[in-house]
Design a protein around this nucleic acid. Structure first.
Length: 493
DNA sequence: CGCGTTTGACCCGCGC
DNA sequence: GCGCGGGTCAAACGCG
């Protein structure tokens, strides 16, 4: 089965490092009228991505937009990136190519970056990282229009790692490759001035109903407040068990190999074992997982979709970092290879099937590995400040009422870190938080040096009132984009 | 009392 | 077939 039939294509390695365009350049490309989804090759003319299986179309690959238009008979409207302020400012400010440090407005959350995988549905949009963004000293770029701009550090000392994006064979777009693997940079452990390099990996699967979905993660401000910085290793879509199981297994295997090989580059040697555990946990869990929602059903046993899985590793003192959504813990288990228990959470939204599990690294207790499974079909819930009940733990996200007590069990393995109540964090209770959804939607996911980023909590919270700068209509922009992208396709978003 | 956590039992898939 | 291990359930529990 060719990739155009929904099979995966592999593009994991061996690309010729192109020069890196600045975000501005990319944005400019994206803003091109009538061509909001330019093939990456136009942006990265030097891009030379090997295609193992799609030789048939490799020469004629056009942008997603074009192909979609060709397939469905109408043209995809261009995204109005002009209205994406401060995103706009964010990009426009990035006038220095390869700048590892980009000043952005407060309120921007890195979380939206996690939402990008679904958008990268065209292999032609794959943008390999630029070598120019590596091994060089960080540069700071000031935003010209934001008084309260905060630096968002895009790591510049990076190792290339495979960045797998395994996209599902959308029925309507069955001629679109479903898996893409490209490289994103990751931290060089020794050069991180802040702390131990973190690794975050994304695994994504698409839900059948919601090809894109709402932001899986609203924000990670809370983590950022705790010496958190995040690395994104990979984004990949993994088809859940059932149909094409054999093929899935193959895909998994392939991807695992990639990650095993590269993810560990970020980790300390002595943590390899731990990483293996994490990786095992992160990926094969899907196939091993119990039949999906057997009790609840719609998707049920005949689920043909993919579930988006995003795996983040970050350093934070929070056991369950605020990501903007509310979660209910439904289980906890000690998994093999990690003395720290893994906690299982479900999104508290009745109609949302998103789950996540959180665990601390076996060797690094500050390392929190959060695996999101699924895509939220709703926006992040509003803050519940001063709400009835007034339970602190309910403010915006899960904050175990007895977090401190609960973690006492963990304390026997490691001293309890100082934890700041979520509610006391500048962003935590300010949901829905504006995130980088717009960035993602407008193509930032294609930026070579964006997926791996580092946030300096000090900068993040420099402002006492960061939310004042949050883009007030972020959700509208997001919704608008969603509509413009999918409404015409008849996709229920 | 409401809401969320805790925790042991159970389910399920996988590998041997 | 069996054991292992990850994931889930659901009653009990606890906090405000």
């Amino acid at each position: 089965m060719s990739d155009f039939d929904g099979n995966f294509i592999e593009m994991t390695s061996y690309w010729a490092p192109p020069s890196s365009p600045s975000p501005r350049t990319i944005l400019a490309m994206l803003e091109q009228t009538d061509d909001g989804m330019n093939p990456i090759s136009e942006i990265f003319p030097q891009t030379n991505i090997p295609r193992d299986h799609d030789t048939d179309q490799s020469g004629q690959r056009s942008g997603l937009r074009e192909r979609l238009a060709a397939r469905i008979g109408f043209s995809l409207p261009t995204l109005d990136t002009e209205n994406m302020s401060p995103l706009d400012a964010f990009f426009r400010s990035s006038t220095v190519p390869n700048s590892p440090v980009v000043a952005i407005s407060p309120g921007f959350s890195p979380s939206a970056l996690l939402q990008s995988p679904n958008m990268v549905s065209d292999s032609s949009q794959i943008i390999p990282p630029s070598p120019a963004t590596n091994y060089g000293p960080p540069e700071m770029v000031e935003t010209s229009g934001e008084d309260n701009a905060m630096p968002m550090v895009f790591n510049n000392d990076l190792l290339y790692q495979p960045y797998n994006v395994d996209l599902p064979p959308l029925e309507v777009f069955d001629d679109i490759p479903t898996e893409e693997s490209f490289y994103i940079p990751s931290y060089e452990p020794d050069v991180d001035p802040i702390g131990t390099p973190l690794v975050a990996s994304f695994e994504s699967e698409l839900g059948d109903v919601d090809p894109i979905g709402t932001p899986l993660v609203a924000s990670f401000e809370s983590e950022l407040g705790d010496d958190a910085h995040i690395d994104i290793i990979s984004i990949e879509d993994s088809e859940s068990e059932n149909e094409n199981k054999d093929e899935d297994d193959e895909d998994y295997q392939f991807d695992y190999e990639d990650e095993d090989q590269d993810v560990y580059l970020d980790e300390e040697e002595e943590e390899d074992e731990d990483n293996v555990a994490l990786d095992d946990d992160a990926q094969p869990s899907a196939p091993k997982r119990r039949r999906f929602d057997q009790a609840s059903n719609n998707i049920g046993a005949t689920r043909t979709s993919k579930t988006q899985r995003i795996i983040l590793q970050m350093e934070t003192d929070e056991d369950n970092p605020n990501d903007g959504y509310r979660w209910r813990k439904y289980g906890q288990k000690v998994v093999k290879g990690n003395p720290n228990p893994r906690s299982y959470y479900k999104c508290t939204n009745n109609e949302c099937k998103v789950k996540k599990h959180v665990e601390r690294g076996a060797d690094n207790n500050k390392l929190v590995v959060t695996t999101y499974d699924g895509i939220h079909n709703h926006p992040s819930p509003p803050a519940r400040r001063n709400n009835t009940g007034g339970r602190n733990r309910s403010a915006g996200t899960t904050m175990p009422q007895n977090q401190m007590d609960r973690t006492s069990r963990l304390a026997r393995d490691h001293p309890p870190p100082s934890r700041t109540p979520v509610e006391m964090r500048p962003f935590s209770s300010m949901a829905p938080q504006v995130d980088l959804t717009q960035v993602y939607m407008s193509g930032i996911s294609k930026l070579p040096n964006i997926p791996v980023y580092q946030l300096n909590p000090g900068f993040m919270y420099r402002n006492d009132e960061p939310m004042m700068n949050v883009m007030p209509d972020g959700s509208d922009v997001y919704g608008g984009i969603m509509n413009r992208l999918f409404v015409k396709f008849g996709v229920d978003i």
